[in-house]
Computed example of a mutant assay.
Amino acid sequence: MHVTVDKASLLRELDEEYTVSPEAIAFYRKNGYVKLKNVLSPDVLQYYGDVITQLVLKLNTLTKSMEERTTYERAFLQIMNLWREDSTAREFVFSRRLAKIAADLMGVDGVRLYHDQALYKEPSGGFTPWHADQFYWPLSSPKTTTVWIPLQDTPMEMGPLAFAEQSQSVEIGRNMEISDESEQVLQEELTSRNFHVNDTPFELGEVSYHAGWTFHRAGPNTSDVPRKVMTMIYMDQEQTITRPINTYQEADWTTWLESYPIGSKPESALNPLLFRKQ
């Protein structure tokens, strides 16, 4: 049976405001992440999820077998900046609804896009090691956040994202790339310091936001279907570019910030303003 999509209603939903409770904002600022239910409807996730999946299949270049891959490669297929590849994907990435939540959680007047990325953990895909995203970003302020949007129900066997609560405020492991070593060292460090880890399933329509320095990981996908996730990274509109301190930040500065001058705001065409308070 062919179902007609009411595109106007989908676009309206992506633009409409989602009210973030004061409790959710306080939780995010204390713990470095928050999970929010019913942020996106099944219709939006189905429609845009299909488009994102088609782009992942089209653009993916990782064709090695699982046995041949590194730990990082086994964790997921990773496709960046879908918004520049497809106008429909752009509608989703540029969602004012999702960008305003980011601004509300961080307590800023506006947010720019750093970049988007689809993260597809294949059946038999491995775990994602403990890491903090901002290790990779040449940005001066911790006011960054990533929205993690599962495109399906995500039970434990599919490897939902897990967060070490309040880890954004401690300077441990900030010099570690995502690797087997980061998994081991950070697991030991987080355990010894008694960090509480939130490792729970995601319902359809539930999303999470986590700060750039919040440590997070994901288990393997032991189900027989892909764990499909779309993410967008937001930064405070007042963010400035700092001098890269590792090769990953050098690459990010060139790739995602168009080598804009050190000390300036990342205002290139690659980093559009997605929300600003009126």
Rank of each mutant, 00 (worst) to 15 (best):
L55R: 15
M80I: 11
I245W: 00
D180M: 10
M66P: 14
M80N: 15
Y248G: 00
A132C: 13
D6T: 06
L55G: 04
G205I: 02
P22H: 10
Q166R: 14
I262W: 00
L36F: 08
E67V: 08
T70E: 11
E189C: 05
L10K: 12
T53H: 13
T242G: 00
N175H: 14
S141R: 06
R69E: 08
I241W: 00
E68G: 11
E238G: 00
S182L: 06
N175F: 06
R96F: 03
G212Q: 06
A251T: 09
A99L: 08
V207I: 12
Y120K: 12
L139C: 10
Q166C: 11
G125Y: 06
N246H: 06
T231G: 03
L139G: 01
N38R: 15
L161K: 01
Q168S: 08
S259C: 07
V20Q: 10
R227H: 04
R12C: 07
T71V: 13
F27K: 12
M176K: 06
L14W: 07
F92E: 03
E68R: 09
Y234N: 03
Y33R: 04
I79T: 11
S268R: 05
P129D: 07
Q184H: 14
P138N: 09
T231D: 01
P226N: 10
V39G: 04
V20E: 08
Q237F: 02
L45Y: 10
T247E: 13
I52R: 01
E258T: 04
Q152I: 00
L190V: 05
T144G: 07
T146E: 00
W253R: 02
P150M: 08
A24F: 04
V185R: 15
W148C: 06
S87Y: 12
P272V: 03
Q278Y: 11
V34Q: 06
G205Q: 07
K265M: 11
A89N: 10
F94V: 01
A75H: 04
H216A: 03
P42V: 03
L14H: 10
G32W: 04
I52H: 02
D224V: 09
